[in-house]
Design a protein around this nucleic acid. Structure first.
Length: 414
RNA sequence: CGGGGUGUAGUAUAUCGGUAGUAUGCAUGUUUUGGGAACAUGAGGGCCGGGUUCGAUUCCCGGCACCCCGACCA
């Protein structure tokens, strides 16, 4: 894409009402726009990052047998009453609204109930199981206090997967697969080395739930890490008998602030039982599927990447989620430079290399500053100087020094 | 939900009970062109409602919005 066509602009100054680094940088660079507290718009650059994150997650979910769906946002209170989660004193984050005839509706804050009801239309036999469904869906949560930029909003995109197995063993096996898929996701998103599988309180149907917590000072959570086991416990389960169960000791644990970038639960038969989902097994017995849920907040993951991977000049996107692979800058406005740049841009396009081409008639300093702020992995400069040498200048956002190389060498590399 | 704070051009901010200033951004022109250029000209502003006052952007009250701390996060 030509940057002259990109309608968003960068800003030198961060907005006064944002304190978090992720919101400041993302707004300054033109990835997101604030609509109101806890509610953000995603602009062209931001949406590209979101789509890249979704692509990674989608691949990993499909790999473990997930089938993608998209359930409605408007929610029928009926099913939520069955599981006793419609009452505002039970679930206090509901946004509720009404039809013209006064019928109440909810705006989905999670989807256990509708997903269970939906799949139970199709699942009647053990032959129909196991079934793993997932979606990317906008959740609405009436948070009393939105904060931390896109990390804790009132409207946000979430990947939620739900598993339906015939047996507890089936659930347990899938749960382990989900854990490894999640690890792949964080690795691929560039934050794997700071993300820990974390034991958290499990609710009523399993001993623990698991969170994926990324070490970051901007986080709201506190976890205790056992480096040798590559695992952690959330402070809510920091009890001696639990530590003993897990083979951990207080002495070896290190406390850190962290961001919850994922959360997975085993529900057992809780929702399927209450919503009347049943199947018939091989012997003709009527049984209840055993379930789990697996969530990742997409915006929060994006915010975490920004918090973790940025420097004083701007964002440093990992290649896997960057809005573009190459940021091509024309330096100088001579016809020769413009021609060489246009030509290289067309080549990159033909080769399918996602390129943002800064073709604006601006001074070099401004282009460099914008490039650093936006954080695209490879910066390529074409100028009179590089033309004279028959080369182009290539600089990785993660590195300080630029390299001169021939176009061919760069194209091969990329 | 409890406590605290703030609302001034697109953005960031200053001042003031008496015609609201600066920077940046924007527009136009000239000169510039490897790390957010220089000059000139121009457009652009007091959250909403009420009160006090000769006069309110300023003081007071109410509302709304936003921010921070805490609680909450099924």
């Amino acid at each position: 894409m030509k940057q002259s066509q990109l309608f968003t602009k960068t800003r030198k100054e961060a907005p006064a009402d944002e304190v978090s680094k992720n919101a400041q940088l993302l707004i300054r660079a033109g990835f997101i726009q604030k609509e109101m507290a806890g509610v953000y718009d995603y602009l062209p650059l931001g949406l590209r990052v979101i789509e890249n994150i979704k692509k990674i997650i989608r691949q990993e979910m499909n790999m473990i047998g997930g089938q993608e769906v998209s359930l409605s946002t408007l929610q029928d209170p009926e099913i939520w009453k069955k599981t006793d989660r419609w009452d505002d004193t039970k679930v206090d984050v509901w946004f509720k609204t009404k039809l013209k005839n006064d019928t109440e509706l909810g705006l989905g804050c999670t989807h256990e109930e509708p997903m269970t009801r939906m799949v139970s239309e199709y699942v009647h036999s053990y032959k129909d199981l196991p079934l793993y469904t997932y979606q990317f869906q906008t959740k609405f949560r009436n948070e009393t206090r939105a904060k931390s930029g896109i990390m804790r909003g009132r409207e946000f995109l979430m990947k939620d997967m739900y598993s339906f197995d015939t047996t507890q063993e089936g659930l347990d096996a899938f749960y382990e697969k989900a854990i490894s898929a999640y690890k792949n996701i964080y690795d691929r998103a560039g934050i794997g080395d700071k993300t820990y599988l974390t034991f958290a309180s499990g609710g009523m149907f399993s001993k623990f739930s698991h969170e994926f917590q990324t070490i970051c000072d901007a986080g709201e959570d506190h976890i205790f890490i056992d480096e040798s086991k590559n695992m952690a416990v959330n402070d809510e389960v920091m009890q001696d008998e639990i530590l003993q169960d897990l083979g951990m000791t207080r002495e070896t644990l290190v406390q850190k602030k962290s961001i919850e970038v994922g959360n997975i639960f085993k529900y057992g038969t809780r929702y399927t039982e209450e919503l009347g989902m049943r199947f018939t097994d091989e012997e003709g017995n009527v049984k209840t599927p055993v379930t789990g849920a697996y969530g990742i907040g997409i915006g929060r993951l994006m915010g975490t990447i920004v918090e973790l991977l940025s420097d004083e000049r701007g964002i440093v996107w990992p290649e896997s989620v960057a809005p573009f692979r190459v940021h091509l800058l024309s330096v100088g406005n001579s016809p020769e430079v413009t021609f060489a740049c246009d030509t290289l841009y067309e080549k990159l396009k033909t080769l399918g290399v996602e390129t943002l081409y800064d073709d604006r008639e601006l001074r070099p300093g401004e282009k460099f500053a914008d490039s650093d702020l936006i954080g695209i992995p490879y910066r390529v400069v074409v100028s009179e100087k590089t033309l004279a040498g028959g080369v182009i200048e290539v600089k990785k956002r993660t590195e300080e020094k630029a390299e001169m190389m021939s176009e061919e060498e760069f194209l091969r590399k990329i």
